[in-house]
Amino acid sequence: MPTTHDIPTNGRPPALEARDVAVFYGAAQAIQGIDLVVPANRVVALIGPSGCGKTTLLRCFNRMNDLIHTARVEGRVNFHGKNLYDADVDPVQVRRRIGMVFQKPNPFPKSIYDNTAFGPRVNGFKGDLDALVERSLRQAALWDEVQDRLGESAQDLSIGQQQRLCIARTLAVRPEIILMDEPASALDPIATQRIEELIYELKRDYTILIVTHNMQQAARISDYTAFLYMGRLVEYGPTDRIFTNPAEDQTEAYVTGRFG
């Protein structure tokens, strides 16, 4: 039974709730028995050694595991009280409201403008696309650097800029929740710092769930931290408590570097 410190939800309903979530790849079980409550407008970090299932869990929240043929998801993921895995839920709509930023920046081979506009376009956006693109690029702290070269190819940007473009692209569809899978692991320290600052600012308007293998990063930017090991949720609580006085011995051993 994992230790869950009381997660205050500020009197608002949680942004996301995982209840007894399990994932199988064919016959092999990747994660099991996950109960997790993500409060609104907070940053929740998922940490744990390689292979512990944190990315698998993250992808449960926007039904990206559907794309893997052998994957099977059990349990419930509640979003606004509705289980995302109900038969009448359209995964396409889920992904519009729960966006994702990936580990390796993956801009489309198109212009900066078209990259940012892709999401709104495929979702049938009818309004002022220019304004939306600008707003998204501003929110991603990229506008100043690209405003006079929106027509250039996104591949010409530096890797740190590309990742911010990917964030802008995700913001353009105006999701409520942003899932980030090790967003800074391919970046140098300065670029990493900019992404971390960005996450801190985005917290005001979005809820963010971030997978990271960098404990110091989790400590720096998250409000709550969940520690996973071998597919199970070992401990979940406020970040400062997890890193100064964790309840579980396994958590203690991991954060002090005694294993992993």
Binding site: Q93, R95, C166
Partner: peptide, 9 residues
């Protein structure tokens, strides 16, 4: 994946 992630069919 990036395209799916943005809600494309």
């Amino acid at each position: 994946e990036a395209a799916y992630g943005l809600g494309a069919t």
